[in-house]
């Protein structure tokens, strides 16, 4: 099953490229020139995103390296137990919205410590597959077009994140049994 999925995603990209280019050519698009035009635009946009990347990674780097994570994990122990979230996955709950690579590290740590087929391991895997890196995405997407006032994006994204966390715990309880 996994081999199939991996195989599919590794052939998907070359085929998508082939399909777009052939489809464009057959429809009279000057594929080479148009591609270069779009690519130039892409490079300009990436440059616009860089300052936002620096700002975000800086703040997240300081927060993580200070050991603040442990303190907030301890602080969240009670609310988590009220909500039925296993103690073992609290670091992931904190890390997931902040950093994708950080969250990946936390998940592999949980899988290693408690086992991938433990309740914590299953909940952590489900959470990782059902939530996203919030701050990075907001910074990059809004940075690219120069939006300063992000309005209600952050509260709404955090509500969605919390819903994903609670749903992960609930679904794992139902599917894999009560713990």
């Amino acid at each position: 099953m996994f081999g199939l999925i991996q195989g599919l995603s590794s052939i998907a990209v070359p085929f998508i490229i082939l399909f777009i280019v052939v489809h464009g050519y057959l429809n009279g698009v000057k594929v080479y020139e148009v591609f270069v035009e779009g690519a130039a635009e892409g490079i300009k946009t990436a440059l616009k995103v860089l300052p936002y990347l620096v700002a975000m990674l800086l703040a997240i780097g300081i927060f993580r390296s200070s050991g603040a994570m442990e303190i907030f994990t301890a602080a969240l122990r009670y609310p988590a137990s009220v909500l039925g979230i296993p103690q073992e996955v609290i670091p992931l709950v904190l890390m997931r919205p902040l950093s994708g690579s950080g969250a990946l590290g936390v998940v592999s740590e949980i899988l290693k410590t408690y086992g991938p087929d433990s309740f914590a391991g299953r909940v952590a895997s489900t959470m990782m597959g059902s939530t996203e890196t919030i701050f990075y995405t907001i910074a990059v997407y809004f940075g690219a077009v120069g939006i300063k006032n992000t309005r209600h994006v952050l509260p709404a994204a955090l509500i969605a994140d919390l819903a994903g966390i609670l749903a992960s715990v609930a679904v794992c309880r139902i599917v894999f049994g009560y713990h």
């Binding site: 490229i17 280019v21 057959l26 698009v29 148009v34 591609f35 035009e37 779009g38 635009e41 892409g42």
Partner: peptide, 15 residues
Amino acid sequence: MALWMGLMRIAEKSG
């Protein structure tokens, strides 16, 4: 970014 925005431009123009 260069790769996918280049491809997107083609996909837009071709309909």
